[in-house]
Structure formats: C-alpha cells, structure tokens
C-alpha cells in the first residue's frame, strides 16, 4: 500500500517534471523540471531496493549534473528562450506520429509481460554500498577501471574544447 501511494505520487511528479521540461520555453524551468523527475526516480530506486544508486542519483544527477546544466544555462544566457513556431515544415506532425507509434508499440509489447528470463538468485536484491562494491570489484573490475579511463578522456576533451579559440590558436 505504501509503495502504491509512493508510485502514484512520484509517478505523477516524474511525468509532470518531464513534460514541463519539454514544454518550458525558458531552459531554467526545463532544468528544474528534469530535477524533479530525477528525484522522483530516486524514490523509485529506493522502493526497488536500489539504495546505493538512489543516493548516487541524488548526488551525481540531481546534484552535480544538473548544477552543471544550470551553470551552462547561466553562462549562455537565460534570456535565450526559443519561440514556439516550428520552422521545419513536417517536423512536428512527423515527430508526433512517430512518438505515438513508438509509445503504442512499447506499451503494446508490454501488455502481457514486461520482464522475461529466469531469476538469477533466490534472495531479494540487496542494493547496499557493500553489495554493489563487492559486485563491482569482483565481477566488473575491468569495466570499472575502464570507466576511469573514460572519465579522464572526457575531462581532457572538455579542457581541449574550452581552450579552443576562434583563430585556431591556443591561449
């Protein structure tokens, strides 16, 4: 019963946040909408036993990533809101048609069963830091190390892009 209540409340919140993100003309509102959705999803993580990912969701996504977004929005200028008129002639009807087809297809596919496959274990999932950490450093240690590489490359790439100048030279 508690879960149902949570699902209804935060499900509506998540959808509202998502729609307002797409709908808002001002990117600041978009960012706030997305933040609401992310926090709602964090709640769902908790109700599904993903305690660690829920915390990470809040700290990394709702915290760091969205802060970065807002920072860039401020850097570029809040007043750059776009007008509603569509300049690509068929884009809007095409997009809506495709989206409707896609949504219908997915929901239709899920009408019978959403999750297939045999259970991998016998006990309910324990999403604690300890459990995730054990898994990461036992089974996934190589991918885990590779993510470090990826992050370094991303950081280097960001620095390179930031140093890029119109005249092609460095600072």
């Amino acid at each position: 019963m508690v879960e149902l209540t949570l699902f209804v409340i935060f499900g509506l919140a998540a959808v509202f946040g998502a729609v307002s993100m797409v709908w808002a003309r001002n990117p600041v509102y978009s960012a706030l909408g997305l933040m609401l959705t992310m926090l709602s999803i964090a709640v769902f993580y908790v109700s599904n036993g993903g305690y660690f990912v829920a915390v990470v969701q809040v700290i990394i996504y709702a915290g760091a990533v969205m802060t970065l977004f807002l920072f860039v929005i401020m850097l570029i200028g809040v007043d750059k809101s776009e007008e509603r008129t569509e300049r690509l002639p068929v884009q809007r009807p095409l997009a809506l048609g495709l989206l409707a087809l896609f949504a219908a297809g997915v929901l239709w596919a899920g009408r019978l069963v959403w999750v297939t496959g045999a259970p991998a274990g016998v006990v309910p999932v324990d999403g604690s830091i300890e459990a995730i950490g054990t898994e990461l450093f036992r089974k996934w240690v190589l991918p885990f190390e590779v993510t470090a590489l990826l992050l370094i490359i991303a950081a280097a790439g960001a620095v390179a892009l930031a140093l890029f100048r119109e005249d092609g030279g460095d600072e």
Partner: peptide
C-alpha cells in the same frame, strides 16, 4: 533497477552505475 528486482539480480543496479558514469 525494476527488472533487477524482479529477477533477483544486482546486475541491474551495476548497469545503472555504469550508465551514470
């Protein structure tokens, strides 16, 4: 995460971790 709960597997949450990275 939802599928991981259903299938009693922590791999779903590990995937989430990597997607976040």
């Amino acid at each position: 995460v939802a599928a991981g709960r259903e299938l009693l597997s922590i791999d779903g949450q590990v995937s989430v971790f990597f997607v976040m990275v």
